[in-house]
Simulated scan of single mutants.
Amino acid sequence: MRVLKQVRFRLGNLFDPAASYGPAPYDIIFCRNLLIYFNRNLQDRALVCLKTLLAPDGLLLVGPAESGLPILHGFASARLPMAFAFTNVEPAKAPRTVAPSKSRFGPATPAPISDVSKVLSPIRPASSNAAKVERSFHPSERAAQSLASVERTANAGRVAEAKELALTHLGEYGPSPEIFYLLGLAQDAEDARSEAIQNYRKALYLEPRHQEALAHLALLLRKQGDIAGAEALTGRLGRIGKRSGT
């Protein structure tokens, strides 16, 4: 009941400068799966507004398909596992989430994977019985665990490691919409745009209704000046959202 008494509901327009949102600044703002329905101009306006409403050390939480937008407006990844959270700091003060070395992942071929087995299996079986339990997993279960490991690593902000894990997963378990999407996400964070676009398209080839891949691909196309292609994908994303009721 004490928590309930602290709750206040207000209706406001994010783009109305006269709107009242209560006493600001806020420590946390939840804005999940809203920005994906705006064009680039409205996305920029929304993020400027959210930045003014957020406390200097506050957190902004967005959806996975929107995770590439806040960093364009002075936010930095909060490096919180399983959350697309960003801190309200200037780029110069932001913790780096991408490995600074560009030579590690060139555009032509992926970098060699060093000791990935330690990443995939940080705790090795201590006995033969444990090994038997490990081997008892169905291949589909192992693939699901590997995919979850890639996603957790990406959510934690360890982009280069997530890319290595994604490439390893792809070699061991074959193509799937999710692995192509996660690989594209890691390449996107490293600013390897052409490779990211290719993998987002592969994800959509296998799953045309993959909303996160649609949103990220639309954003990349817009950055490259392909406005018509970006608008087409945004319209497609909107139609999918209406049919699914999201």
Rank of each mutant, 00 (worst) to 15 (best):
G184H: 06
S101M: 12
L59Y: 09
Q211V: 15
Y37P: 05
K102Y: 08
A160S: 10
P64Y: 06
E66P: 09
E164D: 13
P107V: 08
D115M: 12
S136P: 11
S101I: 15
S77K: 03
K102P: 05
E190R: 12
E207F: 00
P91W: 12
E207Y: 03
R239D: 11
A148H: 08
L120V: 11
I197L: 07
S117W: 06
Q6C: 09
E190G: 10
L221C: 10
A46F: 03
F105S: 08
L53D: 02
E164R: 11
V133Y: 07
E212D: 13
C31L: 14
L50S: 01
L220V: 13
A19T: 06
A232Q: 14
T168E: 03
A65G: 14
L204A: 08
R40W: 04
G241N: 12
K242R: 15
K202Q: 14
A130I: 06
P100C: 09
N13I: 04
Q211A: 13
D226T: 03
R104I: 15
E161G: 00
N199R: 05
S149F: 04
L182T: 03
G63P: 01
G174F: 00
K51N: 06
L50N: 03
A92S: 13
A192G: 15
G235V: 02
L35G: 05
M1P: 04
G241V: 03
Y26I: 02
G225A: 14
L182A: 05
G63W: 01
Y26L: 07
E172G: 05
G235E: 13
A218Y: 04
R222P: 04
P70Y: 01
A162P: 01
A203P: 05
A111W: 07
P23V: 00
T109D: 13
A148L: 08
I28N: 07
F105G: 00
L60S: 02
L185M: 10
P17Q: 05
S136I: 08
A148D: 12
A213F: 06
N39V: 06
S136N: 14
Y173Q: 09
V150I: 05
M82H: 12
S136M: 12
P139K: 09
K223A: 15
A46W: 02
